[in-house]
Design a protein around this nucleic acid. Structure first.
Lengths: 236, 236
DNA sequence: CCGTACACGTGACCC
DNA sequence: TGGGTCACGTGTACG
């Protein structure tokens, strides 16, 4: 433990720190409000300050690659900190008052471990945000807890990749089918109107005859005849 | 703190617990080996027991939905534990020796907080495994740290979904193109071989004549003729 | 009471 | 030295 200076509440050890009469109905924020000395921002904590548990309804538009809220998104970061007024029986027995070994340079907190703690909080918060974003992607398939989110994401990615590849293959197939299943070759295409009242078979026969009379030598033909439009394509 | 019994090393407070002479070249396992009393499994810890940092090369085949290694995958779980020989200056001042309030039932650890710790370890390990699995999915796009993995997964899912949907649309387009751009209707289909040496135009004319002689009344016709195979489909 | 799940502060480790 | 990341043990909340 080494140093208990900037703890916030240290609710353990049954030290009934936060008020006892009105307490048990409000389980949020065991640490009191306690305006931060020296950190002017971050008023009005939303309840249940842990950023993660709130993500179940968080919206995102797939983070624009860097605008994640510049630095402290307000929820959890630099939440404040309060000494538990003694912490009764601190981990170091018999520490005297008012001196506490005076670290080499500066006097009080914000030194060494304090910044470390803050950085870690920030990191945690960032990670929670990422979780929230990911959860927004898999909310249908995930139970909501961290582990489930991560697992669901892996499964989902796997499925999506499979579906994409299959679709891609199917796509190639279709394209090949349209193109006639040997590779692309030069081909000719005509398209014209026919008398809709007459038989489609007769129309096609007429068209083919016309082609033949034009001395067309076709080795492959594709045609589509519907609604009075005849489209025909051949290769020689 | 409340109870410091089963700590492993408690390296803080500059109590130089693990050997000092041969130490600094091997940064793994500050906690010693210490055979577990009562847990027969899990010998031979791989170095750097934290399961997460090793995942950068972990393979997976997309977890078969429940076979994640039944319970303790061996790396980290029930690593053992060792009392810090006193932990010098326990958090409860003046607790007498040899009695310590005797909790209701059992005597020593494995009570209350000990199981809690173990469960937490197990949970952490499971989560690390999930991370590893997810990382295997995004290893190409992720830097490797937790946050990056999660973010990359979200981005990847987003991209994959987009690609899949686009492919699906394109697919419908192609299908519609093949089917002829009015909706699917009941239609008839024939397919037969023709003499490859003769003209494709003649073959088609012959086929159409045959249809006509069968008294087929077609309002729309699609056909594909190539490599000696004539496929034809019509609706009445 | 037990299990699950989370956030926290912290020591260790690596650039 | 110092920021970044991790795993850890712990306190807390919920079912």
């Amino acid at each position: 433990m080494q140093m208990g200076s900037y703890y916030y509440a240290s609710f353990h050890d049954e030290a009934p720190f936060y008020l006892h009469g009105a307490a048990p109905a409000s389980p949020e924020l065991p640490f009191g409000l306690i305006a931060s000395p020296g950190e002017p921002s971050s008023v009005s904590q939303p309840p249940r300050a842990g950023a993660f548990q709130d993500y179940r309804g968080a919206g995102l538009e797939l983070l624009p690659a860097g605008a994640r809220a510049p630095h402290g998104s307000g929820t959890n970061v630099d939440r404040r900190v309060v000494d538990a007024l003694g912490r009764m029986g601190g981990d170091r027995e018999q520490r005297d008052e008012e001196e506490e070994r005076r670290q080499p340079a500066d006097t009080v907190e914000s030194s060494r471990g304090f910044r470390h703690m803050m950085r870690e909080r920030q990191r945690r918060e960032k990670l929670s945000q990422s979780y929230a974003d990911l959860y927004a992607m898999v909310s249908a398939r995930s139970k909501g807890d961290k582990n489930s989110v991560v697992q669901s994401a892996a499964i989902y990615i796997h499925e999506l990749k499979g579906a994409r590849d299959q679709l891609q293959r199917r796509n190639e197939e279709l394209k090949a089918k349209i193109l006639g299943h040997d590779a692309r070759q030069q081909c000719v295409e005509i398209q014209f109107e026919v008398d809709e009242t007459s038989s489609a078979i007769d129309s096609m026969i007429g068209a083919l005859r016309r082609l033949k009379s034009m001395d067309v030598r076709a080795r492959g033909i594709r045609s589509n005849m519907s609604d009075g439009r005849l489209w025909m394509q051949w290769r020689t």
